[in-house]
């Protein structure tokens, strides 16, 4: 059997890599390596031309305000059309914080300025004064066909409040923390194989179920439904996940 190969696009790592989001790339790369899958990570920077049909996975993190301002224009005008087609076509994309906001319809700053997003997720974001900071646990149903519940742990740090439109499906319900807006208990959005949320931490190393959910989607996109993802020994990862759930949600 020939080696399985997946391609991951890392969007604007120079500007949009804050709060340890690099850990998500490390997690996907190692979880592929341990299974003998070759994962090629390609950085996408300002001005780069990208053939999105060649990618199976993508990561879009958060940045400082200055970083986000520098890339927003490039993202909207150069990448959004190709990226949205790939999302419709099943690209497994994880977008956190600033990346999540840019996938929504718009961001309304607290000075009243309306910054456009690509609108592939039915959400919009409103800037707030107080930052929402702290540990977060959300109860997620990753696979609609297999309604088993996964408690995802992370750390949120955002001033934007993201509100869901009627077509947005929630990734999960907030058990601890603020979530997307601190008001309605929504924690992240899922559309096809694209996930947007505010969970840093890093997210994927401590939530191997979500990492593998993304890898499964990527394999399906590249190799069809027959490609299997072998199980790994996730004792350490699940211990880290469980110890935070138990600390934050005393029984």
């Amino acid at each position: 059997m020939s080696t399985l190969v997946l391609q991951l696009a890392y969007l604007y790592p120079d500007h949009m890599s804050i709060y340890g989001d690099r850990g998500n790339i490390i997690a996907l790369a190692q979880r592929c390596a341990w299974r003998g899958i070759q994962l090629n990570v390609v950085s996408v920077g300002v001005g780069d031309r990208v053939d999105w049909s060649a990618f199976d996975l993508a990561f879009f993190g958060g940045g400082q305000d200055s970083g986000q301002a520098l890339i927003a224009d490039d993202f909207l005008h150069r990448q959004s059309a190709g990226l949205c087609r790939a999302i419709e076509d099943g690209l497994a994309l994880l977008a956190i914080c600033g990346g999540y906001q840019l996938l929504g319809h718009y961001f309304l700053t607290h000075t009243g300025e309306r910054l456009p997003g690509v609108g592939v997720l039915d959400v919009h974001t409103v800037g707030g004064k107080k930052r929402l900071i702290g540990n977060i646990v959300i109860e997620a149903i990753l696979d609609e066909e297999q309604p088993s519940v996964t408690r995802l742990v992370g750390f949120e740090n955002h001033s934007g409040r993201t509100y869901h439109g009627p077509r947005a499906r929630s990734l999960g319900r907030v058990l601890v923390g603020y979530g997307d807006n601190g008001e309605d208990g929504t924690g992240g959005t899922v559309y096809r194989n694209t996930i947007g949320c505010y969970l840093h931490g890093s997210l994927l190393p401590k939530n191997p179920q979500l990492a593998d959910y993304m890898l499964r989607a990527a394999l399906r996109r590249r190799y069809g439904s027959t490609a299997m993802l072998p199980a790994l020994d996730d004792a350490l990862e699940l211990h880290a996940q469980r110890s935070m759930v138990e600390r934050l949600l005393p029984r």
Binding site: Y19, G20, R22, G23, F155, N157, H200, P205
Partner: peptide, 9 residues
């Protein structure tokens, strides 16, 4: 710092 994300940086 209550956020340990930095371990990944």
């Amino acid at each position: 710092g209550t956020d340990v994300s930095w371990l990944w940086d």
